[in-house]
Design a protein around this nucleic acid. Structure first.
Lengths: 242, 242
DNA sequence: CGTAGGCTTGAATATGGTCAATGGTTGTGG
DNA sequence: CCACAACCATTGACCATATTCAAGCCTACG
């Protein structure tokens, strides 16, 4: 029923570092199941203590924090290949929530097996740390995009980065990628109001630089959009897949 | 000459998880030296491939990215106990720069020994991942503070968080902590202009909530400042020390 | 057919940015 | 010892970007 790791479609992406045979064998044992969720499902909840950690096999979602005043900050968007739940796995408690924005399939791992990874499989433990470092790096980039740069630059930057990320997992066709989020999600990710986000997206559409509507994002000329964004997100380097 | 890990003053802080004897013995071997730098020194450079990673033993600094348009984003401030260089250590290249803002002493580790940690000392490898997860968590909090919240809230939040962090390493005396940064550093961290940051700090000073001048930050009533900040930074949980 | 959720638009407002100038302190060279 | 430069903090005036408020529209769905 579930996809065994040796047949995982993500492994075919250049973006992810290859497994050794030994690692592959280990992952086959490590993976304990699959979770399929509908759009709008809360997969992990801030403050919870999930017994499981996941890798996104397909679908997309958001990672967000809810603040005391009720506002929401989207930390980042989740795409196939992303690992989620490390904080709960290591620190004991989720520091943010995870929600699906489209039908999503997740590989399930037991949190209690994490320690075994460190004890018995150092190369995979190393990769876990690598994944954490990559995540940290991306958050730093987000911080920079939010702190510096105008609304239009931020929106352009975000669309570019998302487009790039979907490309490397093979979801792009002729410059178009699926993008099942709401404008509110992007607004909450960039620290902008919904209204202004909408107007900015409109401007981008009219200028022909980027067209996001009906769940699809089309970018004709990435270089042009990057110039518009001011600081373009850097190229995506290969990273490990869990 | 250098401080041996068994005599490390940071180990006395409640904030850091205790070492086992075995871990202590390992760290004594792992630590390869100390680096002492003057204020304003660039310790690690974006894009560089440092052969070493560090733990801040004393002093403070900034971790920042320089953008294409010349602007600077301070990712976070560095305090005693912080581990730096993990990205270079794992991913092969620094994604940001590190600069000292005060005289700083760093414990030096050889990057090439990192892999040995994973192979031979899983509990320390686990702690490394833990540190990365904590770092990621803090960046998420920063993102939330920057995205939501007004200028005054952001400044109040940042001062609170810094105060808290310095408290747990024993640098607070009667509500006052040393804070050797420039207003420009805080502005660059919060995505605000220098002028507005200055005016906001002035307002905080006049209201008596927080007083930062001449390298010292005084917070009389943390609860009151937290209320003003809107979303207070959460209490600092124990974390591993490298 | 009516309601709910999400997208779109305009108008008024405010928050924070930019520009410009001043003062204090430190360090340096004449 | 003084003059000067460099750096940082401070302040005021003006302006622009982005927020808030308000309304209308469309589609999906019960």
């Amino acid at each position: 029923m579930t996809t065994p790791c040796d047949k995982c479609p993500l492994r075919r992406c250049e973006y992810f570092l290859p497994f050794t045979d030994e690692e592959l064998a280990f992952m086959l044992r490590f993976k304990s199941g699959e979770l399929t969720v509908d759009p709008g499902t809360t997969v992990l909840m801030e403050g919870s203590n999930s017994p499981q950690v996941f890798t996104v096999l397909s679908g997309m979602g958001t990672r967000y924090k809810t603040l005391e005043d009720g506002s929401r900050q989207v930390i980042n968007f989740l795409f196939p290949g992303d690992f989620i739940g490390l904080q709960a796995g290591i620190m004991g408690e989720m520091k943010h929530s995870v929600e699906s924005s489209a039908p999503m399939v997740l590989c399930v791992f037991n949190r209690s097996d994490l320690w075994d990874v460190f004890k018995a499989h150092p190369s995979r433990a190393y990769d876990l740390t690598w994944i954490a470092a990559v995540e940290e790096h991306f958050l730093g980039e987000s911080l920079a995009a939010m702190g510096q740069g105008t609304a239009s630059q931020r929106v352009a930057w975000a669309l570019l980065r998302i487009h790039q990320r979907l490309r490397v997992v093979g979801l792009e066709k002729a410059g178009v990628v699926p993008l099942p989020f709401r404008q509110q999600d992007l607004a909450d990710a960039l620290g902008l109001s919904l209204v202004h986000t909408n107007k900015t997206l409109m401007a981008l559409r009219r200028s022909g630089l980027a067209r996001w509507s009906d769940g699809s994002l089309a970018i004709a000329d990435r270089a042009k959009l990057a110039a518009y964004a001011g600081s373009a997100p850097e190229l995506l380097e290969k990273r490990p897949l869990m």
